[in-house]
Design a protein around this nucleic acid. Structure first.
Length: 252
DNA sequence: ATGTCCCAACTTTTGGGA
């Protein structure tokens, strides 16, 4: 099984690259974030022709999450308790429970959106804490949190900002504490393995990245994983997303 | 160290969000 997660920063703008990426990588399951589409704009028909079933939870201009699968798609649920935005969708694909997550950005430590982010992460923790531990699970997405300073190109540049605060890191660590493995870090402990680079300031060229996109899974599934890597090349070229896909492969 | 991209709209330029 090959599962990937990718914040595409508008599926409308990214559709040519997403199609090309799917043809090249042939993922069994692809988790998308920031589709920025309403459900009626989502390319269900084109995906069917490509061999993928899809579930989309969209709201239009902002947010939007999806799950694409060529190995079956059932038991779709979307939304977190108390949340009105399109940031969370789950489905079962070939016995694997998968979730596509787009965690709120937070904007600034003194912004109401920051409190919303922390509440959102706690609502996700409750869902993951209460899950059926007998079922294999893969949680992927844009978490908008760099777990440690090693996940940040220049920690001093981020002092006093979101993505690196103690409360955010504690909230992400609390997700992992529901017995989930951070696959990207587990398989690449010695490389930063950034997943996002700002469009501005030539950040990609300068190596100014953050690791804020994750694939998390239960321990039994992690034991079957051969690798989890960032497809850094996808950040290059014409009209890239500001995020690179994170990809994992495991026996199934 | 704020150099871009994407979206919507009272749309051909501006403002909000990331």
């Amino acid at each position: 099984m090959k599962v990937a997660t990718w914040n595409v920063n508008s599926l409308t703008a990214r559709w040519p690259r997403v199609q090309e990426w799917i043809h090249r990588h042939e993922p069994d399951v692809l988790l998308l974030q920031e589709t920025k589409q309403s459900d009626d704009k989502f390319p269900f028909a084109a995906l069917t022709e490509m061999g993928y079933e899809a579930a989309h939870f969209g709201q239009g201009q902002w947010n939007g999450v999806a799950i694409l699968s060529r190995v079956g798609l059932s038991d779709v649920h979307h939304g977190l308790e108390g949340d009105i935005e399109a940031r969370f969708i789950g489905a079962t694909c070939n016995g694997l429970r998968v979730y596509s997550c787009y965690v709120p950005n937070g904007r600034a430590l003194n912004d109401p959106h920051y409190d919303y982010k922390l509440r959102w992460l706690e609502a996700l923790r409750i869902v993951l804490s209460g899950r059926d531990r007998a079922q294999p699970v893969m949680v992927g997405g844009d978490f908008n949190v760099a777990l440690s300073d090693f996940d940040v190109y220049d920690p001093t540049a981020f002092e006093g900002t979101t993505h690196v605060s103690v409360a955010e890191r504690d909230a992400l660590a609390a997700l992992l504490a529901t017995d989930l493995v951070d696959l990207g870090r587990y398989f690449h402990a010695d490389e930063p393995n950034y997943t996002w680079w700002d469009y501005r300031n030539g950040a990609f060229r300068r190596g100014w990245g953050l690791r804020i996109d994750y694939l998390l899974c239960d321990g039994a599934t992690a034991a079957r994983v051969s690798d989890a890597y960032v497809d850094r090349d996808e950040r290059k070229g014409e009209k890239p997303s500001d995020h690179a896909p994170v990809v994992t492969e495991f026996s199934w």
